[in-house]
Amino acid sequence: MAKRVVNVLMTLLGAIFGFTIVYLIDKTKVVSGLPTYWRIGIYAIGIILFAIIFYKFFPKMLQGLEKSAERASTYMKGLSVQELISTAVGTILGIFVAFLISMLIIQIKLPVVGNVPFIILSIIIYITLGYIGMRLGMQWFKETGSIFEKIKAGIDRPAKETADGLIKILDTSVIIDGRIKDIIDTGFLDGKIVIPIFVLEELQHIADSDNDLRRKKGRRGLDILRMIQNESSLPVEVSHKRYREIKEVDSKLLQMAIDVGGKLVTNDYNLNKVAAVRNVQVLNINELANAMKSIVIPGEQMTVTIIKDGKESNQGIAYLIDGTMVVVEDGKKYIGQTVDATVTSVLQTAAGKMIFVRIN
């Protein structure tokens, strides 16, 4: 019933709009010289034509408005406070301009219908300019938001460095790895630990994965993060800056490190290389682990336990307490035994350090 009433009202509105259009044309004296029955016919055609147009297209327009409202509601939920303020300011300015224009056109009156068509036109102007103002406000925030962030970072940076040391931004890989908690507990890191909101969301996405291994990694990362927040002596902060204009998480991390003047903590090899190109300081956990491995020189004595055979014939494999691989010449027959050996050479590879020894 309500739908029928709305359709009838829109049909009447279309008829009024059609009459208005023909009346304005008639006022220009384009058709005023025609016989009366021709003018009446033109009025009838205009009224019927626009009544049909409004009747046919209004339901589709209404559906489009409903979908647009749903999309707008979903989008607004993800906006930050700053973005909402910018959008609201733009919308208010657009409505103000629409108000000024409407005050001019609403004074026009037509015979029979008065100023009703211009009131409708005024409503359309309000909607259109309000929407344009909203879009301009959002665009203004995107273009100026990063500038304000850099200015704010430049103002706050000396105080932050003096009070808290440099900011340390954790990426997803280093949280899942888990060793970062032990490093924080030892006191080798100072300053503030920052967890970007998009890293937290990526961890949650991994924890909800259908793949069992990924799901376990994601849950372990969330557990490590919870322990860092609850047990760490350093201040831990979740940053809600999303960088919506940037799609990749790694690029967002680099931009955040640049904006706040912090260091990026990771064990991602490729991210480390990209950060070096962009002059972003990186603390790589894998590099730290390699730097902490034992330093040996040829001729040095060591005691190792051979646990398996090597790739080459008669080789045995042992490991130091820090995980460094030791290749024992002719050590295959001593698997399961602890032997004294002499270092013959040391090989540094991309995967880490390898020590070659010979049994005494």
Rank of each mutant, 00 (worst) to 15 (best):
T20S: 15
T338L: 11
L264M: 08
A276D: 09
D182C: 02
S122P: 06
I193C: 09
L136H: 00
K263R: 14
I119R: 08
Q337M: 15
G323N: 01
I155W: 08
V113K: 05
I16P: 00
K241V: 12
I132P: 04
D182H: 07
E237W: 01
V343N: 09
G133D: 07
L13C: 11
D330C: 04
I183E: 02
L347K: 08
E287D: 14
K142P: 00
G46Q: 09
G310V: 13
T91V: 15
M10E: 03
V304R: 04
G261E: 05
E300C: 12
Q107T: 09
L234R: 05
I53W: 01
G41Y: 03
I151A: 06
K77T: 12
N270H: 07
M325W: 05
E237Y: 13
E83T: 09
P59H: 07
K252E: 01
A351W: 01
Y23Q: 06
S86R: 00
N211Y: 06
W38Q: 02
D156H: 05
R157E: 04
V113Q: 06
K216C: 01
G64A: 12
V357P: 01
E237M: 09
G221N: 04
A2K: 11
I101T: 04
S239Y: 08
N115K: 08
T11H: 02
D322I: 11
I92V: 15
S232D: 06
D250E: 05
K353T: 13
F141T: 04
N286Q: 06
V346W: 09
G299V: 15
D309P: 02
D340V: 13
V238R: 07
V296C: 07
M227H: 10
D259R: 10
T128K: 05
V343R: 10
I123G: 06
I285T: 13
R242Q: 14
N270K: 04
L254V: 15
G352I: 15
I155Q: 08
L13A: 14
Q348N: 09
I355L: 13
V5A: 11
K181Y: 07
Y55H: 13
T342C: 12
L254I: 15
A275D: 02
A2V: 09
E66A: 14
A98C: 10
I120C: 13
V8C: 07
T303H: 10
D177L: 10
I306H: 04
T186E: 02
F96I: 14
Y126E: 06
S294A: 12
Y37H: 12
T305E: 15
I101F: 09
G33T: 03
G46E: 06
K252R: 14
I16L: 13
M61K: 06
I355Q: 03
L13Q: 03
T172Y: 03
T36N: 11
P298C: 14
F118L: 00
R179W: 05
I306N: 03
V199A: 05
K168W: 06
V346T: 03
L222M: 12
I195W: 05
G133L: 04
N211Q: 08
I224T: 14
N272H: 09
M354N: 02
I52N: 05
V249R: 07
I105R: 00
G261F: 07
A318S: 13
V30A: 13
P35R: 10
R157S: 11
Y37G: 03
G64Q: 09
V357K: 00
S173Q: 03
T303F: 06
Q255I: 04
I151M: 08
Q301V: 15
V346C: 09
I193G: 05
D171Y: 03
F198Y: 15
G154M: 10
N230C: 01
L170S: 02
L253H: 04
